[in-house]
Design a binder for these strands. Sequence first.
DNA 1: TGATTTTTATACTGTCTCGCATAATATAAG
DNA 2: CTTATATTATGCGAGACAGTATAAAAATCA
Lengths: 223, 223
Amino acid sequence: MVQKKKGPPQGDLPQKMAAAPVEPKRRGRPRAYEPDVALGKALDLFRSTGFAATSLDDLSAATGMNRPSLYGAFGDKRELYIKSYQRYRDNARAVMGEIFRHDWPVREQLQKIFAAALDIYLSGGEGPRGCFTVMTAGSEAVADPDIRAMVQNALTELDMAFARCFRRAKEKGELPADADPAVLARLASATIHSIAVRARARAPRQELEAIVAGAIDVMVGKG
Amino acid sequence: MVQKKKGPPQGDLPQKMAAAPVEPKRRGRPRAYEPDVALGKALDLFRSTGFAATSLDDLSAATGMNRPSLYGAFGDKRELYIKSYQRYRDNARAVMGEIFRHDWPVREQLQKIFAAALDIYLSGGEGPRGCFTVMTAGSEAVADPDIRAMVQNALTELDMAFARCFRRAKEKGELPADADPAVLARLASATIHSIAVRARARAPRQELEAIVAGAIDVMVGKG
DNA sequence: TGATTTTTATACTGTCTCGCATAATATAAG
DNA sequence: CTTATATTATGCGAGACAGTATAAAAATCA
């Protein structure tokens, strides 16, 4: 009963909102890993091999942490998976949100969004890893309610962001009066889903960019 | 060296094209399973749990065949997975092809195609299982070249079928002169991919039908 | 009936898997 | 220097896993 059921030690967790690069003088033996980069490695691995096919040995090797350290830091395999997915979503949300935030012309904004998505899907060492939501999380979503909720959330979040974008464009007169922002948003999301799937099958970037360009033309008219 | 390397016994395989419900008097102990329905069960299982998370015990239980029989009939796990996927594709191709074959108005044809896709994705006992290509095969596609080739083939086959459909419609004057069949085809495929992903996250059928209806309106104009 | 053939049934093997127990190590506090 | 704390390192143990060997069973053929 050494480290049982006191939950993951949750790292530092500074009281309020200090960025805390200052170590508050930890007590025992210092960590040999940085939780953040370790989680990033785990994310990469889960993203390319999925949940079931990724063993704790693989994760251990990738993160450089041995198994007890993994458990201490992140909990069991499922928790680590969920934390990885959360991190992926946080990152995607940050990147996308930064673009959606601006008040650019629709066409330009869509181009930037899709380019960012492509960067995410095609990044990584060997072979494109696609989208966490579409590929591996979608698989687990059927059996695991928590993951399913996260996936649903990711899907609707994207729909909403696109819908807001199109609504604004319509108000600014960039879209015809009969354009339906909600419908266009679903189409934009669908384009995202489609390039995620195709990226996984190693479609060349050029092809994906052509798909994006065509979709934009249909959605907001040929520029 | 009992049943080694003579390949799966390939059932009957009648010489030319006889439906062959007539047993040509097999020699030894009769099979306790029907290869076709067993493969269907395996397909269902792979489709809902993916490759890695589906054990041979699960497959054995689902098909009613014990492990040696599985090996004898279909080969190892990967071969069984590929045969399952092949069967899924054959079925999907048959269903879709039957619809694409006709010379109906685009709108009607698209409606039927998407309805058929929804039927496939939402069918099954507990919880929608989505699309084999998008979900589980897409995951394996990164690491396995054979599966990747099948996925690529599935994607382009769908693209081509939609493109042909839109090209015909344009020739018949159902689409504006500046409509690009290839672009529209990609959008139609994207819609398919999107509802496949959403089905996996248990989006209600009504929502999926709304997405389809909106997409059709954008692609061929509001009817 | 007895021999042959094909399948089923049982059980085994070596490997991998997850999670945890235990012990060693490295730091801060008293 | 000693004690307390927090981590790393090693490795165990029960079970799941894929694949196969072996034996029993059920049919046809002679």
